[in-house]
Design a protein around this nucleic acid. Structure first.
Lengths: 203, 203
DNA sequence: CGGATTATATGACGAGTATCATATAAAACG
DNA sequence: CGTTTTATATGATACTCGTCATATAATCCG
């Protein structure tokens, strides 16, 4: 069939959106092409008119997720001074809400142990996303007078991702909550932003 | 066939050993029962004489991995005062060697984003392992005079796992190395053990 | 030594997977 | 309006996987 001119692009975007949720919820390997198509109201065979392979879908979806994460940071920290922006991001990231909603959360947290087993293309996209987030954090740190902001930012990002990922993996809620809260407090203390309260509603 | 009396137990252990490597290397979903059997020199059908399901194998293998991790900590820190033991463990954990050898490394690092998608039984085993490692770290922290050693230990463990997991996921070696080193230095500084050099050969 | 036991082998089943060749029908366009 | 284009549908292929029923043969035990 041949639908209206923009129809294919719409379908492409719809597939990407579905895949970007499923990617974080089920992981790259358990995401099934046929299921993504079904959720979009299509049949499996037509998939290859939109993406040249499952891997292409995964990589493109991952890129879209990182792009959206950047937009979310913009919105969340708009107009805030560096220390407040940093504290806001940490409070947003290391939270029960983020932990409990992997399908809309940070892909670094959701995919960190899956990624080493993925294709080079997927991993390169992952790299780009990590570098982007490191740069955002490093910007706040540099403005706050920290030396070596890039290295510190990378370390902080990995600690945040680890805190949420492990608290997600653990099924004991008490341990999970305790781990999350201690990590949040510890990281904020380390960066000297413990005094900054969550300054705007998150998300 | 019916082999010598202890033969079944030996095979069981052999399967566990193979599975515990494959589990960390390929993840729980990509580990194939038939491949484990093949590596043991057996055929796939006999598997169910040893384990009642793939999930039982995974859970038992995970438990074995945590047990071995505990033994490794004992060996690594034997006779060391608490601060030295802690510094030794951190240096061992957050290292290029650990990053580059997932199949023999810590399962928290190797499986943190896979675990939320696994069976309740597997996750309970994961819980036990996390609690065990938290307790080990908390012991050192308590001896060092830290308040709330359990919460701090949980936070530190998640930061260590995150550092190694993300540095493993990232394919840019420069970024990976930088992240690892900054995390190692940052965590040791936070715990006041920066002055303690790696006091014995690791492993 | 010979029958009972059982660890392992053989082979099959059904489900799920990515991929692709071909068919179809709806829209675009001359 | 009729032809061309192409997004989507249908259906097939060729895997891989977990699981299990059954067969086999090596050891144990009487």
């Amino acid at each position: 069939m041949r639908y209206s001119e923009s129809r294919k692009a719409e379908t492409h975007q719809k597939l990407l959106k579905i895949a970007s949720r499923a990617l974080r919820e089920k992981g790259p390997d358990n995401l099934a092409v046929a299921e993504v198509m079904k959720e979009a109201g299509l049949t499996h065979g037509g998939f290859y008119a939109h993406f040249k392979s499952k891997d292409a879908l995964l990589s493109e979806a991952l890129m879209a997720v990182f792009a959206r994460a950047g937009a979310n940071i913009d919105r969340m920290t708009e107009g805030l001074p560096p220390r407040h922006a940093l504290a806001t991001y940490i409070d947003f990231y290391i939270s029960p809400r983020h932990r409990d909603n992997p399908s809309t959360g940070c892909p670094i947290t959701a995919l960190n142990s899956d990624t080493p087993r993925q294709s080079p293309k997927f991993r390169e996209t992952f790299d780009q996303g990590v570098k982007y987030l490191v740069a955002r954090i490093a910007g706040w740190l540099a403005a706050g007078g920290h030396s070596e902001p890039d290295a510190l930012a990378a370390s902080v990002l990995s600690a945040m991702a680890g805190a949420v990922a492990v608290s997600r993996a653990v099924s004991d809620k008490g341990l999970s909550d305790e781990m999350l809260e201690a990590a949040r407090a510890g990281i904020k203390a380390r960066l000297g932003v413990s005094d900054v309260e969550l300054s705007r509603s998150v998300n």
